[in-house]
Simulated assay, not measured.
Amino acid sequence: MILSQVDTVQDISKEDFLKKYFIPQRPVLIKGYARKWKDFDKWNLDYIYSQVGEQEVGLYDNKPADPNKATNEPVTHMRFKDYITLIKKQPSDYRIFFYIITDHLPELLKNFSYPDLGFKYFKRIPTLFFGGSEARVLMHYDVDLGDLLHFQFEGKKRVLLFPPDQSAFLYKVPLSVHTVYNIDYENPDYQEFPALQYAQGYEIFMEHGDALFMPSGYWHFNRYLEAGFSVTLRSFPSGPKRLLKMLNEVFIIRYTDKIMRKIWKKKWVQRKQEKAYQKSQEALKEYLK
């Protein structure tokens, strides 16, 4: 992988953000951006613990999804408080995925404000993500194709970002929003995945209060280096082409894959993995001509 440093700023105006990053669709890290929030001191695991009551949450781990089950099915469930206690106490790869604040913890909506950066937020689904110090998230892009403003809290996190035009080198799985399961992005094997060494992207290390702008369709891999959590604010898909692509991803490609996975199970997953490898090998040959 060819990894560059992402642009990093301490603050940014709406005009500069739109001109330099949003319109050209370039990522940027804004250090400590959440410190602008009036209740910034509440964005920690202790405060979340005090608010969740007796909620139970679904947990995911680092293992590939079971081909005999739905891809979004949790591996186990746990009381939210017990989960927070666990990840604070010891290393864990358990993580919480796509916890919608408006549905489960609306009180948190009072503790932040949507940054005025010139684009429209989809305010129905501000989401939380949690991870233990060994948790990682498979390389993927978001199916709704929104632009993302991703805030990190508590522990540090490593993020890899790749533009959509790098898909061919990342071993993208057909009819899916993720890459093949067996790539280790912390120690990539270029013998097994030779195209990956030509993928051009960014490496970012996030700390408490940092915000990362991830443009629509960007691939991202997240590795929690310490127990922590994040908040993602997303925009509506901008422009008719992106909207049509999003509808195709959500209602045609996604459900076609679900049906085929239900029918063929492990055979379907294996076939897609093989096809991903084949396509990236073809892209590599073309690139090296």
Rank of each mutant, 00 (worst) to 15 (best):
I2P: 01
S4K: 15
S4N: 14
Q10A: 10
I12F: 09
I23W: 02
Q25L: 08
K31S: 09
K31Q: 15
G32W: 10
K36A: 12
W37M: 12
D39L: 12
D46Q: 14
Q51M: 15
E56L: 03
G58W: 07
G58V: 09
G58T: 04
K69G: 02
A70W: 05
M78A: 11
K81H: 06
I84D: 05
I84H: 09
I101H: 03
T102S: 12
H104E: 08
L105F: 02
E107W: 00
N111W: 10
F112A: 03
Y114N: 06
F119D: 02
I125R: 15
P126K: 08
V143S: 11
D144S: 08
G146M: 07
K156T: 11
K157L: 03
K157A: 11
L161G: 08
P164V: 07
D165K: 14
D165T: 08
K172T: 11
K172I: 01
V173D: 01
V173F: 02
V173R: 15
Y181V: 01
Y185L: 04
N187T: 07
N187Y: 03
Y190N: 03
Q191V: 11
E192D: 10
Y202L: 02
A211V: 05
Y218N: 02
W219C: 08
N222C: 06
N222S: 02
E226Q: 15
V231Y: 04
T232M: 14
L233V: 09
R234C: 02
S235L: 05
L244Y: 11
V250G: 00
M260H: 07
K262T: 07
W264S: 07
K266Q: 10
W268I: 01
R271L: 13
Q278I: 04
Q281Y: 03
E282K: 15
E282V: 13
L284H: 11
Y287M: 14
L288F: 04
